[in-house]
């Protein structure tokens, strides 16, 4: 090609009409995803500003990039250099013959970095999901009018991580809203299921028809979706088909869950006797499982405020308000013990 340049010389120009691009620095695993034969859809999520009353600019700070099951925090990086995006164009300068030119078409003062985030979506889901509680047979729950999909859209983690947490909380959709059941409600439902299983002679840790159990729970006024969420997701063995008619409970997982819910339901009280708790726990399990109910199973989930009493361990970090006030009340009394513990470390 005849040009007026020396061979290899590339004319460089700057467009007057700059376009808007953003530069996103990608970790290798995302590059791999994007370059795969069928690149998956990615999304950028941020928290709804209205849910964070005293953090007006939190939405920008909380923007994340999500793959199917991973979350990356977006961080803005300023550069004092000029960083141009260039494009090849055929350009004629001063009525010369048009020559291939590299033209800057965008200037990026800010680039975005991605940092893997393992933030637990639990606090977001707990905030978004109203509590479904049953007190003296009366349902106490204020619907939020949101389905699971619209809640996930507002949670700044990947759908995969949100889904796992949703199952963990035994969250469920019920007549146009989504809820998370209280520990007390879960304990009650479990009681019904266990009683029904004993009556029908069903072994819960082998295959059984989920409908048999949901029917019983339905007659007692529990939402079917909630019972299904409990039996087919939260307590189920991992290889169970969620959509099939069968259910099979994971025995260690169920034993742990029952113990934990008992403790959670009594979170407010300060005088739960360890011996009494262990008895109730054992009684709440199928006969053959009684021996499984030992404190080791709920390791890390409880603390012993005295030699004879037990309570659910205060959750670390930002948890729901009632937990905060509860733990504040008890910890302020023992601030010296707390300091002593910190010093030992």
């Amino acid at each position: 090609m005849a040009t007026q340049q020396d061979e290899g010389d590339v004319p460089f120009s700057v467009a007057h009409d700059m376009q808007q691009f953003r530069l996103l620095e990608l970790p290798p695993e995302i590059v791999e995803l994007i370059e795969s034969a069928n690149p998956p859809a990615l999304s950028i999520k941020s928290r709804v500003p209205s849910t964070t009353p005293n953090a007006s600019n939190a939405s920008a700070a909380h923007a994340v990039l999500c793959t199917a099951n991973k979350t990356f925090q977006l961080r803005q990086v300023q550069t004092s250099n000029s960083l141009f995006v260039t494009q090849p164009v055929l350009e004629s300068h001063n009525n010369e013959i048009p020559t291939p030119t590299t033209r800057a078409i965008a200037s990026c003062a800010v680039t975005l970095e991605l940092h893997p985030s393992d933030e637990n979506p639990r606090i977001y889901l707990e905030e978004a999901l109203p509590l479904y509680d049953i007190v003296d047979g009366e349902v106490e729950a204020a619907g939020n009018g949101k389905n699971k999909a619209s809640i996930f859209a507002d949670v700044p983690v990947s759908d995969g991580q949100a889904e796992r947490c949703w199952s963990e909380l035994v969250a469920f959709e019920f007549s146009g809203s989504s809820y998370r059941p209280s520990a007390n409600t879960l304990s009650q439902i479990w009681k019904s299921i266990n009683a029904a299983a004993v009556a029908e002679g069903i072994k819960l840790d082998s295959q059984f028809l989920a409908d048999d159990m949901t029917k019983v729970a339905d007659e007692e006024g529990y939402p079917v979706a909630l019972v299904q969420a409990l039996l087919k997701r939260r307590l189920s063995t991992d290889n169970q088909d969620i959509n099939g008619p069968w259910a099979c409970l994971d025995r260690p997982r169920t034993v742990q869950f029952v113990g934990q819910m008992l403790l959670e339901a009594r979170r407010e009280s300060d005088d739960y006797l360890t011996a009494g708790f262990l008895d109730t726990w054992k009684d709440g399990l199928p006969e053959a499982w009684r021996g499984d109910a030992v404190l080791k199973v709920i390791d890390g989930k409880y603390e012993l405020p005295s030699s004879t009493t037990i309570r659910a361990k205060a959750r670390s970090g930002t948890s729901s308000k009632e937990d905060n006030t509860a733990s504040k009340g008890s910890s302020s009394r023992k601030w010296h013990a707390k300091f002593g513990r910190a010093r030992k470390k």
């Binding site: 340049q5 010389d9 460089f12 120009s13 467009a15 007057h16 350009e91």
Partner: peptide
Amino acid sequence: DPSTSPFTRIGTLVF
């Protein structure tokens, strides 16, 4: 006049 000259030639890249 930006409409007639959409770019400015800055220089030359040489490798």
